[in-house]
Computed example of a mutant assay.
Amino acid sequence: MYGLGIKHMSVVDSYLKKHSEALVKDVGIEAACELTGKSKATLGRYYSSHDEHADRFMPIDAVAALEEAASYPHVTAALAELKGNSLSHDNRRRNSADKGGVNSDVIALSQRFAMLMGEYNQSIEDGIITMNEAKRLLRETVALQQVLVDMKLHLEEESV
């Protein structure tokens, strides 16, 4: 078969194509076309399992546009999983209600850090951090991390 120019998809390629399809279906084909500027046929080729489309993948700018509109970052999560990582999915929409910029981020950062330290102080009082306390600390740490991500995005916006 090698001489015929037929390329069979690897397991990784197939996995990415399935998640690309899930992303398009999450957003809806019509909306996906509008968001990416691609036709239905072009989007279909990105997740087609046919050999003639085995080497076609959705461009990263199209993935970003669709994941902004989607309920879940399907392709990004798939890429993370392939590398043995996982994502912490936050249902709130980044920067949608918060237009305060860096000053608001600094205030939110200090508040979240204070909450983390308060939670830590309570957890360590008896000298032992229980499983439930560790989970609460983890939640506060993830919330703090999200504030830092928001702050980074605001700083990048202001530096342009």
Rank of each mutant, 00 (worst) to 15 (best):
G44T: 00
A69P: 03
K40T: 15
L35W: 05
D55K: 04
Y46I: 04
E30L: 08
D55F: 00
C33D: 07
Y72M: 07
T36L: 02
A65I: 04
S49M: 15
D61G: 11
H50S: 14
S48K: 10
A65T: 06
K40E: 11
S48W: 07
G37A: 09
S48M: 04
S39D: 05
E67V: 05
H53Y: 03
D61N: 12
A70K: 00
L35N: 03
L43F: 10
E67D: 12
A41H: 05
H50I: 06
T36W: 02
A62S: 14
H50C: 01
C33L: 04
L35E: 10
L66H: 02
E67P: 06
R45F: 04
Y46E: 09
A31Q: 14
A54F: 01
E34W: 02
K40Q: 15
T36K: 04
E67M: 03
Y47R: 08
E52N: 10
A41C: 09
Y47V: 05
K38Q: 13
T36E: 04
A41W: 06
L43S: 11
C33I: 02
T42D: 15
A64R: 10
F57N: 09
A31C: 12
E30K: 14
A70Q: 00
G44S: 14
R45S: 04
S48V: 04
S39A: 01
A62T: 02
E68V: 07
G37C: 10
L35S: 10
K38W: 00
L43P: 01
L35M: 11
A69E: 09
K40M: 14
D61Y: 02
T36H: 06
R45T: 06
S71I: 06
Y47S: 01
A32I: 02
T42R: 13
D55T: 15
A32C: 10
L66D: 03
L43D: 08
A62G: 07
A54S: 15
L43E: 07
V63P: 08
D51I: 05
E30I: 13
S39Y: 10
M58L: 15
P59A: 00
E30R: 13
